[in-house]
């Protein structure tokens, strides 16, 4: 597997499954994609209605989302540097599978959800 391929695989998997702490009125421990989704909701309310608190939360979500994306991309790039193509493929696949497998357990703290305070990956956007 190429470095580029490993990097993007790890980065995408992390965005979808790796729990990171963030704050949008409540602290959550959930993947960056959920943060992006919630930020999009807040931003859409801001676009329709304006409002200081809405702008603040949208900005907060944007900053956190960008920061986590940069960090995860850097981490994925660093991991993708190691070893031979075969070792890289094995590491990337193992890490991605581990993250994916773990994501099906209720490991995310999602108090902003209307349905559950703890969620798995399938429930993140309900």
């Amino acid at each position: 597997m190429s470095k580029r391929g490993a990097r993007w695989l790890l980065f995408a998997t992390a965005l979808l499954t790796l729990p990171v702490p963030f704050y949008l009125g409540e602290p959550e421990l959930a993947p960056v994609l959920r943060l992006a989704f919630l930020t999009g909701l807040v931003a859409s309310v801001f676009a329709a209605e304006g409002g200081g608190v809405t702008a603040l939360l949208a900005g907060l979500g944007l900053v956190q989302g960008l920061a986590w994306s940069v960090l995860l991309f850097a981490a994925a790039a660093a991991i993708a540097q190691v070893g031979s193509a075969r070792a890289r493929a094995a590491i990337a696949a193992a890490l991605s599978l581990a993250l994916l497998a773990a994501s099906f357990t209720d490991r995310y703290d999602t108090p902003l959800s209307s349905t559950r305070a703890r969620s798995n990956v399938l429930q993140l956007f309900q």
Partner: peptide, 21 residues
Amino acid sequence: SVMCRVYRGWPRLAFFLMNGR
């Protein structure tokens, strides 16, 4: 409206957005 859709779908988020208005 967008706000009401968020209120019904993501009420906890709406709590902050509406209360802070």
